[in-house]
Amino acid sequence: MRCYIDRVTTNSDVVTDIKQLIPDAGMRRRMSRVIKMAVTTAVETLGGVENIAPLDAIITATGWGCLADSERFLRNVIVEREQLLNPTPFIQSTFNTVGGQIALLGHNHCYNVTYVNRSHSFEDALLDAMMRTTDGENRNILLGAFDEQTPSQHRIMERMGLYRCQNDGEGAVFAKVTAERTEQSIAQVTAIEFLTNSLTEEQCRERYTTDEKCAVLYNNYTKYGLYPTSSAQSFAQAVKMVCEGSTEVVIYNEYFGATPTLIKVQCIG
């Protein structure tokens, strides 16, 4: 399996005015913080809303989904004793809201799916994208991952003791994925594996790299904070490393004892 990457953007790379990225004022107003963060990152990646329509798949990933809206609606249910509730936070609490809003923004009728699988959400979405490009089913895919922090989520994870060794975090990463190499291609993904056993950094290097110049990002997601799709930030980092001259970057992630995953990003040669 193989796919090519045209562009990767993280939420901190977004420079375009939100009014250009999400031109519909009504949509913009209703969107929560995470939806705005994810949709602006997505549209920035594509270089404008007009580039949503030609996509033939929109694949998103999120571990927590739209937490703030879920929490707001749940709080209202309890506080208002199930009476006279505003439906907007409920509507926008669904996990596929970001994928749906991107489709709506570009009037795009293509394949649209959301993976919600903890620390593997992004990897599962990437696997789906690679299977689809390999099958020839899709040629131009928008792939993305996002998660947001909220004060409640932070407090709960703090009470669980999860921030003792690691910082908190949130973010969005989107990539434009193609089946064939294009003039815009900047990197290629040549492997995604779900491993049965843990590997040490040395074992990763021995088994998966071709020469000493290859880089290994070993559990490097930790640097982006403790949230389910932080590994997508490592992926963005690997693509940027390839753009800056690395020939090959192997990403190994093992998040809290979950099945380890391995992604290989290579230069397009």
Binding site: I91, G100, Q101, A103, L104, N108, H109, C110, Y111
Partner: peptide, 10 residues
């Protein structure tokens, strides 16, 4: 097949 209506959120 999985397709999107792209009409409205709900």
């Amino acid at each position: 097949s999985n397709r999107n209506d792209a009409h409205h959120q709900t």
